[in-house]
Amino acid sequence: MSTATLDHAKQAAAAAEAAAPKHAGLLLEFETPAALMKAAEQVRDAGFSKWDCHTPYPVHGLDRCMGIQPTILPWIVLGGGLTGCTLGLILQAYTNGIELPVSLMQAENGVIRELLAPFLPSGYPYVVSGKPIFSIPANIPVMFELTILLSAFAAFFGMWGLNMLPRFHHPVFTSARFKRATNDRFFISIEAEDPRYDRQRTRALADGLGAAHVEELVA
């Protein structure tokens, strides 16, 4: 057999493997939230990490059964809010002509100031309705709005980041039964990528969880 034929055979096998549906995990279907929660506790105790529950409505207490840790999202939002508040203050100070670091540079080292000058557009010390150039009462609305804006951004995009969104596909969508996850059925999906996942043993575990139906997912 020539090496060319061998390569060809290898390629064909690889192509066949790529075309064939790949085992992606298990989908367990339950009829009641109570059965789902009981099963979720066992999956949690088995130490899986890449698994999830899918329910048509929020099920109270499910996060405890799944062993989900409290989210760090509030801290991200706090960081976003504080950033916005500071940014609002600096923005207004700068645009009103208060440029503390730049003035310091000017005082200490004229060369640096001259070198940086073209890249440092300056604000205008512009008196509006007799108010001081820089006064906190006038600055609070912008600081407040930027706090809200960056908090909202941090909450929205932080949530996407923590959930690794956007995600356009998931193996559960290959299942026809999964459509009922938005209607009247409760599901647990365990992904094959989980380090604890073993096709035979996990299947045996899944069969013992009291699911109404266990399905192998393909990707």
Partner: peptide, 12 residues
């Protein structure tokens, strides 16, 4: 409280 103060402060 702030809104009330700010408007009056600004209107002067």
């Amino acid at each position: 409280a702030y809104s009330q103060f700010m408007l009056i402060w600004y209107g002067n």
